[in-house]
């Protein structure tokens, strides 16, 4: 059974706004904003899935008239997608916290090696003499906000617990 959804303009606009906001947040450096962006994008795509199953406010409950019922499959798909987004959100939270513990902020940084190679002249000597530049976060005053040598701190972020 193919249900051709008549596009409700309000829903279409809502989804468009959600996608725009989500992608905008995804473009920022802070992992927390990325996280919120992922959540918003997840909502956007779930809403789109719902819309693919028919207009709103027609619950697929057995006993009602099948013609007035939304397609239940997209709802099942959306439920699965929600579960997955839930798992990924928690993982991003842990990763952001881990980054905060290690380097004092949660910003996604540049690829240092790539910058180095991109910046070097077409001269093989430069390749030989270039040292490994350390990541440029040493001037960050907050980088030692939380000392991170404790094994439990590591366990906190990655769910990892090593035993001797």
């Amino acid at each position: 059974m193919i249900i051709i959804p008549t596009i409700n303009l309000t829903m279409a606009a809502t989804i468009a706004v959600l996608y725009a906001v989500g992608f905008y947040l995804l473009l920022s450096r802070s992992l927390m904003r990325v996280l919120i962006g992922v959540v918003v994008l997840g909502h956007a795509s779930n809403l789109l899935l719902q819309l693919a199953g028919g207009p709103p406010a027609r619950p697929p409950i057995i006993g009602t008239d099948p013609a007035a019922m939304a397609d239940p499959l997209p709802q099942a798909l959306a439920l699965t997608a929600i579960v997955i987004t839930f798992a990924l959100t928690t993982f991003l939270l842990a990763l952001g916290y881990r980054s905060f513990v290690l380097v004092g902020h949660d910003e996604v940084q540049d690829d240092v090696e790539d910058r180095r190679i991109g910046g070097q002249k077409a001269d093989p000597v430069a390749l030989e003499s270039a040292d490994d530049d350390p990541p440029d976060d040493s001037d960050d005053p907050s980088s030692d906000r939380i000392a991170s040598t404790d094994d439990d701190v590591e366990a906190a972020a990655t769910g990892e617990r090593e035993r001797p």
Partner: peptide
């Protein structure tokens, strides 16, 4: 289990970290 693990790692873990850093 996942919720309990979250509470352990992100909940209690972060609280403990904050207390330790506060003491320091």
């Amino acid at each position: 289990g996942v919720v309990l693990e979250l509470l352990r790692s992100l909940g209690s873990g972060i609280e403990r970290d904050l207390e330790e850093s506060g003491e320091r």
